[in-house]
Every structure is written in structure tokens, then in C-alpha cells.
Amino acid sequence: MTDPRSNSLFLYVQNLLGIGHLRRAAAVAQAAAAAGFEVHFVSGGMPVPHLDIGAAKLHQLPPVRAADTLFKVLEDENGRQIDDAWKAERRDRLLALFEEIRPSILFTELFPFGRRQMRFELLPLLDLAKEASWKPKIVSSMRDILVTKPRPDRNREIVETVDRYYDLVLVHGDEGVISLADTFPMYDELTPPVRYTGYVLNPIDTGNGKGDGEGEIVVSAGGGAVGGSFMAELARLRPDLPFADRTWRFVTGPHMPEEAAREIESHAGPGVIVERSRPDLAALIARAYLSISQAGYNTLAEILTAGTASVVIPFEGGVETEQRVRADLLARRGRLAVVPEEALSLDTLCTAMHTAVAARDNSIAGVDLDGAAGTARMLTELLEQA
């Protein structure tokens, strides 16, 4: 067994449906490695091609995903529902990895504010870390907006877990835009410090503004797991929408079901490009004349940085509310146009597209967009307090 590393980071992330959590965690891993941490990137979701974690070391657990937007049923990579034996085997692998690495910081992305489905392995991991002789620091991180828990007992469970195990809570957002207190009703009962890192961005290389996407209408849905419906409707309406004479590029995402992707392709005519995945999607959006997308954390953070005109159609399926909250906050600042998915029509899209282009030069002053470096700095400060 090795000695504990004085600057090692054990970063656990579990994506279940989309890829936003994974991409945000990857940006944190890059920044932490650049700041001198030995980063171990422990991923429990389906692998994503071309994920850039910088100098971090990837540890892929047996992957699991949600069967639907309710997140109640979990499946393995072959579509089989996981059982207690599967859970026990993955838990044991995770605990063995932690004991092998002996990190100075255990970092759980979203848990315990989310990913309750993973308690079977995360609570044993937290117990192991809490009892470890080398006393690692324990950190929870989350995006800017939480999905509000309707049951008070679930919120009480979160508070008790945070207070029992954690030394620090990091919010990857800007308190000036939205506070954790706005979406977590028991915020005042949290004992560990809560710090705001700023919005976490993946580095964007726009190629000096030249290349694919330049002057185009770029339609995207992140990983694509839940974007098929709105993208197919856009493809169908495209000939009658504004800027139909421009090139339209649909990037369906690596996790979009084949049937949904084929439907989008069936509506593609002259001047339409349909692609399954683009590792440089952020750069495409930065070069675009107009972006039409869902309102996930990473996409909107990239839009804020690039200044691209944007229409967003927030995902609101299942229990998800965070995309609509985030989109409405930015729309009120005049930075983008929102079309609720249930209101998607030729008229609402036409209005939103013209509004977005007219607002493309609007900026939001003072929003902290340096969250990856901010996270690395706060982790360093945490170790220095020891």
C-alpha cells in the first residue's frame, strides 16, 4: 500500500443521462492537474468519445446509465437492469481503487445533492474516507442550479450527509446570478463552508473564427439523449424558418437513440448537415450565426463566453427543472431567447430567432466564468488549511 499523496485528487463523477456532468468534471480535472494536483478521474457513466481530461488519469468503472428521464431504473452498458450483485462488485472495485490511491482529497460531483441512486457505493466510500488514517479532505461539488427536492425528508437526508462527511461544498456558479439558497430550501442548515467557484468552462479553440460553423445555424442537444424530439421538429420546420438560406448544421450527440437521429436525417435537404458528434461543438457554436440548443449548464456557459446569438429550448422532462430556471434567468438579462418545448411552433421559433439575433451583442457584465481555475484554487486552499 502506498503512502497518501499530499496533492492527489480522487474525482468521482457519474453521468446517467446526458454528458454535462462529465464535461464539467473534465474541465475541473484539467485545471486541477495544471495546478499541480495528481488527478484520478473516476467515471461511472457510459464512456464519451474524445473526452479531454488533460493530464488526469482515467479510471472507468463498470458503466451504468438511467433507463429513462425519471432516473429510477439503472442499466448496464448492455441494457440490463443492474442488480445487487452488480452493485456489490462495483462498490468493491471503487473502494479498492480509493485505498490504492490514498488521495488527499475525495471529490464527489453532485452527491449528496443528487445521484441518490449511487448511495450503494458512495456511502461506503465516504465511510472509508472518513475512517482513513491519512484523513483526506472530502468535497462535494454541484452545478449552479439544483433540481428542487419536493420531499422534506430527502432534503434533510442531504443536510445530514453533508454535515457528517464533508469539509467543503463547491457550487460551480456565480452567486450574483443565482444562489444555492434559491434552489435548496435547507441551505441555512448546511454546516461546512459553501463557496462559489464561478461557471466552469471547457477551453474553446475557435480556430480564429474560421472553419465549420462559421455563419451557420447550429442546432445541438449536448449528448443528445433527450434532444431528438425538438431537433426533429426544427428540421421539419426549417424551410419556413428565418435564415433558411444559411447552412444549418444539426449535431445530434453521441447518445441520441438511432431512431431519433434517423428522423432528423429524413428531414435534411439541401443546405442541411447532420452529424452524430463533434468534439469541437463549443467552437462550432462560437463561430455560428445563431445557436439553437437545449439549456444545459455547459452549453449556456459556452454561449456566454462566445457571445453567439442563442435560442434555447430547455429540457423539462421527468423531474428536471434546472434548464428552465437557468434559461429564464439569462433571458431576463436580455442575453438569449427561450422557447418552452411544449410551446414549440413556427411562430414561437420565428419570434425567438429574430429576438436572439437582435440581442447578440448584449453581454452580462461581471459573471464569473473562470470556475475551473477557481475550483483548483479552492482545493489548494483547502489542503493548506490542514
Rank of each mutant, 00 (worst) to 15 (best):
E342R: 13
L168F: 12
G198L: 09
D144K: 01
R5G: 06
G253F: 12
E77G: 12
E160P: 14
V42T: 04
E259C: 08
T348W: 04
L94W: 13
T321S: 13
P47D: 00
M142L: 14
A365E: 12
L300Y: 10
L146C: 07
V319S: 14
I101C: 13
L11C: 04
E75M: 05
I292S: 03
E342M: 09
A331R: 15
T375W: 05
L369A: 12
A96F: 12
L61N: 03
P124F: 12
D163A: 14
N202A: 07
F230R: 06
Q60Y: 09
F243C: 14
R335C: 06
M378W: 07
V312E: 08
A352Q: 15
V147A: 13
E322Y: 07
S220N: 03
G176S: 13
I178T: 15
E175Q: 15
A221I: 05
D188H: 12
A295P: 02
V367Q: 09
E109M: 09
D280A: 08
M231W: 04
R65V: 00
R246N: 14
R333V: 00
V39S: 04
D68H: 11
G222Y: 09
G207A: 01
A181F: 08
K149T: 06
A261R: 07
R164P: 10
S266G: 01
L281M: 11
Y196D: 06
R80I: 08
L284W: 00
V169C: 11
L284K: 00
A337L: 07
I264G: 05
F250H: 03
M142D: 02
A32F: 00
L346H: 02
E38M: 06
E384S: 04
R151K: 14
S8Y: 02
I145S: 02
L126R: 06
R65K: 12
T321N: 12
L330R: 05
V147N: 13
R326K: 08
R102G: 05
L95V: 07
W86Y: 06
G307C: 09
A96I: 11
D76V: 03
K210R: 13
T355W: 01
P340D: 15
R238K: 09
A88Q: 09
L123W: 01
T183E: 12
V139Y: 01
F184L: 11
D68R: 08
L58P: 04
P103Y: 12
